[in-house]
Amino acid sequence: MKLAVVTAGLTQPSSSRLLADRLAEAVTRQAQAEVRVIELRDLAVDIANNFVTGFPNARLREAIEAVTEADGLIAVTPIFSGSYSGLFKSFFDVIDNGALAGKPVLIAATGGTARHSLALEHALRPLFAYLRAVVVPTAVYAASEDWGGAADAFTDGLGPRIARAAEELADLLLHRRPRAQAKEEAEEEVVPFEQQLAALRPLG
């Protein structure tokens, strides 16, 4: 299986990347998958040029294909002005709006205060619902106070949220047909038009 991880953090190191790595690690402990991390910071100019030219360059095309061909997706954004970042939204704007249909997605975000955690529900979840993805029930938000606590070696309370969301995504991955298999089955199920037309003709 292939797991794509999209992170829109702008700084280096980035709390969004740190959260993305922890989520991916938690998922792959339960479902073996090849992980591909896509740092949108490195693609910012390519994404902007795509809006101007109407075409992705080779590097952006490779990132888009990694996301659309993956069996599952983890999407993490910093929260700016109560919503996802412009860079995060722009990347998903250049992806065909049917390319993520049926794909299991775990959404997550980081921010300075827990007050912005509802952005996951009023911004990210509707975005992926519009793209017809299957978003796991548990979304993960990490505020500044979540890092460096005493609940485990890294966080205070964040660990159980990560574990629950990762379990939900892993469960979908394990029970979902591989993308290539689903495509083959869909092609096999196509009935030629002539055959359908013959079935409608009256007998005798």
Rank of each mutant, 00 (worst) to 15 (best):
A24E: 00
L18A: 15
F80K: 05
V136W: 09
A63I: 07
A66Y: 04
I74H: 00
F88Y: 15
I64H: 01
Q30T: 02
G82P: 12
D96C: 07
L19F: 07
G98V: 06
L100Y: 01
A26W: 08
T28M: 05
N50R: 07
P78N: 03
R61H: 06
R125F: 10
A44Y: 05
I47D: 00
T53R: 11
L40V: 02
D96G: 02
A133L: 12
A44W: 03
E25R: 05
N50T: 15
G112W: 08
D42I: 01
F88G: 08
V134E: 04
E34A: 10
S85D: 11
F88I: 14
G149Y: 09
T113F: 02
E34T: 07
S81I: 11
D21A: 04
A114Y: 04
A119K: 03
L40G: 03
A33H: 01
R41K: 14
V35Y: 01
A133W: 04
N49W: 15
S117N: 03
Q32T: 13
L73K: 05
D42M: 07
R125L: 12
V135K: 10
S90T: 14
N57R: 02
V105E: 02
S90C: 09
E25L: 05
A139M: 11
S81W: 12
F55R: 06
A75Y: 10
A58F: 06
F55N: 08
S144I: 10
G72D: 04
K89A: 05
A119Y: 04
R36H: 12
G86W: 12
D96N: 14
I47A: 01
L23G: 03
T113E: 10
N57I: 04
I74F: 13
A63G: 00
A70P: 08
R125W: 11
A75V: 15
P126S: 05
F128H: 11
T77V: 08
A114H: 05
A139T: 14
I74R: 00
L124C: 03
A33N: 00
F91M: 06
R125D: 05
E34M: 06
